[in-house]
């Protein structure tokens, strides 16, 4: 989509002729706006963007929106929903609604940071791997396949068990270690197919360094794939964080949707009939993850017109 278009001046042109319009590489922000417009034009993706925006607003303005502090346990225990506590209170006497709102912070943060870091590693490794040939490529191939094939959740749990008490940093680390390989593989195959194109050969003959070719010539053509792998990695990170927290391997002190469910199960919220306490955090995780997947429907359309929405064949 964003492939550079340079119209060559026609041969034999008179010097006083008006200059031929040459499409300069679009400035990054125009590309961004155009990309956003393409994503927005897909109804599913539009819904995803709105949903994501709601969660980001909740996360950023949690102190203003939430009625109480999430750790304030001065209320009655296991209260049902009421005007003062719309979603009731937990078994420790905290306001459920406030915890749900504050919980958005951890999920959004982990999704963003872990997603960005995984994508960064995927871009660095995937693209240099796709561009190099020979023995080094085989070695990287082996390492990436190893990471792809080792089951993610068990590896995450084992790592988290060894690094117990590491808090949020540990969770992000574990999620990134287990999450970068898929993106690297996708980016590598696209780099490989671009490697043989004419404009790359031209760049090679003009003496550009490999580093520059990979990151200045090839990279801009893969914006949609990179965006796609970011949303994919962020979704996986959010689900992984909630899973680890639910198993009690996250930071015990922090309030996230996963830890809320951990405490809900450990304090037998099921027996006291606190169904909102069970229902709300999980629904939020599912909605946040869905919003990212829906945005990806629009991002898919950027690179593959066949996946763009429309009536049948």
């Amino acid at each position: 989509m964003t492939e550079k278009i340079t119209t060559e001046a026609e041969p034999g042109q008179r010097p006083d002729a008006p200059p031929v319009r040459t499409a300069a590489p679009a400035p990054p922000w125009t590309v961004l706006v155009r990309g956003a417009a393409t994503v927005w034009s897909v109804p599913k993706a539009r819904f995803g963007v709105v949903l994501l925006a709601i969660f980001v607003i909740l996360a950023v303005f949690a102190p203003l929106i939430a009625p109480y502090l999430p750790t304030d346990n001065s209320f009655g225990r296991s209260l049902p929903g009421s005007a003062a506590h719309l979603f009731g209170t937990t078994a420790a006497g905290e306001d459920v609604l406030s915890q749900v709102i504050w919980g958005a912070r951890i999920s959004v943060l982990v999704g963003m940071v872990a997603g960005l870091l995984s994508t960064l590693i995927a871009v660095l490794i995937g693209m240099s791997w796709g561009y190099t040939r020979g023995f080094l490529a085989d070695v990287i191939n082996f390492v990436v396949n190893l990471f792809l094939v080792i089951p993610g959740l068990p590896l995450m749990i084992v790592l988290a068990a060894y690094l117990q008490g590491g808090g949020l940093t540990m969770i992000i680390f574990v999620v990134v270690v287990t999450g970068w390989a898929w993106g690297a593989r996708v980016l590598r195959s696209q780099t490989q197919s671009l490697r043989g194109r004419d404009f790359i050969t031209a760049a090679q003959f003009s003496g550009e360094s490999s580093f520059r070719i990979v990151f200045r010539e090839i990279l801009p053509n893969m914006t949609s794939l990179i965006a796609g792998s970011f949303f994919g990695a962020a979704t996986a990170a959010i689900l992984a964080e909630s899973g680890l927290s639910f198993l009690g391997l996250g930071g015990a002190g922090s309030v996230s949707w996963g830890t809320m469910l951990f405490w809900a199960q450990n304090s037998n919220a099921i027996l006291t009939g606190q169904w909102v306490l069970l229902f709300a955090p999980g629904l939020c995780i599912a909605l946040l993850a869905t919003s990212l997947t829906l945005i990806n429907f629009g991002v898919d359309g950027l690179s593959n017109p066949r996946l763009r929405e429309g009536k049948g064949r």
Binding site: T235, G243, F246, I270, P281, I285, A289, T290, T293
Partner: peptide, 21 residues
């Protein structure tokens, strides 16, 4: 799209609560 974003443990907890208890 929606159900595959469900965290496994949440679906499990809901089924446990409604169909179990």
């Amino acid at each position: 799209t929606f159900t595959s974003a469900f965290p496994y443990f949440w679906t499990a907890l809901l089924l446990l609560f409604f169909a179990g208890y």
